[in-house]
Amino acid sequence: MPEVTIHIGGRGFEVSCQEGEERYLQSAAKMLDDEAQVLAEQIGRMPEARMLLMAGLMLADKTAAIEDRLAGFDAQMAAKDAELAAKDAELQALRAAPAPEPERIEVPVVPPQVNETLAELAARAESLAQSVEEKAIA
C-alpha cells in the first residue's frame, strides 16, 4: 500500500491508501485543508483533533447541502421523465391510430346551357365591338 503525506492545517500526516487512489486522497486532503485554513483564520490555533473535527463537520455540512440539491434535481428529472413518457405514449397512440376518413367535397358543375349562353353572349359582344369599330372608322 502506498504511503502518502497529506498536509492539513499546516500539519503533515502519513496516510496509507489503495494503489491508484493517491490522487483522490490528495484531493480530499486539500478540501479538508481548505476548511482547516478557514477555521485557523477565524478561531486561531486549536488542538489538532478539534481542528480536524470542525473541518470535517464543515465539509459534511457542505456535502449535505449538495445532497439536498441533488435530491431536488433527481425529483425534477423524475417529473420530466414521467412527462416525456406521457408525451411518448401520446405520440405512439397518434401514430397507431387509423388515418381519418377522407372528407368528401362536392364541387358544383356548370350546366351545359350556361356554356352555350356565355358563348352566344361573347359572339354578340364581338359583333357589337366590330360594328362600333366600323362606325368609328367611317
Rank of each mutant, 00 (worst) to 15 (best):
E41S: 08
L53D: 05
G56Q: 05
P2T: 11
L118K: 10
Q76G: 09
V4P: 00
S16R: 10
A86N: 13
A64G: 04
A119H: 07
S127M: 11
M77K: 14
A71M: 07
Q42R: 13
M58K: 12
V107W: 03
E35A: 15
L25R: 01
L57A: 13
A79K: 13
E116P: 05
S131Q: 13
M51V: 03
A122N: 06
C17W: 06
Q113D: 15
I43Y: 12
M54P: 03
E22Q: 15
E126R: 13
I8F: 03
E126T: 12
Q26D: 08
T5P: 02
V114N: 09
A122C: 03
G44D: 08
D68F: 00
A55R: 03
L121S: 06
F73C: 11
V15K: 01
L59A: 06
A93N: 03
M54I: 08
D74L: 10
Q37F: 01
G20L: 05
E134R: 11
A96P: 02
P108C: 00
Q92S: 06
R95T: 02
V15M: 01
P102V: 02
A122K: 11
M77R: 14
D34V: 00
A122H: 09
A93T: 01
E21L: 14
K62R: 10
A71S: 11
N115L: 15
R45V: 03
E83Q: 13
R50V: 08
I8P: 02
A60Q: 14
E48V: 06
A29C: 11
K62W: 03
L52M: 07
K80M: 12
L94R: 05
A29K: 10
V4K: 06
D74V: 10
R104Q: 09
Q18I: 03
E35I: 00
I137K: 15
L52I: 09
E120D: 14
Q92D: 09
L91V: 04
E133R: 13
I8R: 00
G10F: 04
K135I: 07
S16L: 08
K135Q: 14
R69S: 13
Q113G: 12
E21K: 14
S16P: 02
A71K: 12
E22R: 15
L25G: 00
A136C: 04
L25Y: 04
E35R: 10
P111L: 12
G9M: 00
A60L: 08
D68S: 12
A79T: 14
P100E: 12
I6L: 07
R104H: 06
E48F: 00
E21M: 11
R124A: 14
A55T: 03
A49H: 10
L121I: 08
R11A: 06
E3T: 10
A97K: 06
E21W: 05
V38D: 15
G10H: 01
A28K: 01
I8M: 01
M46W: 01
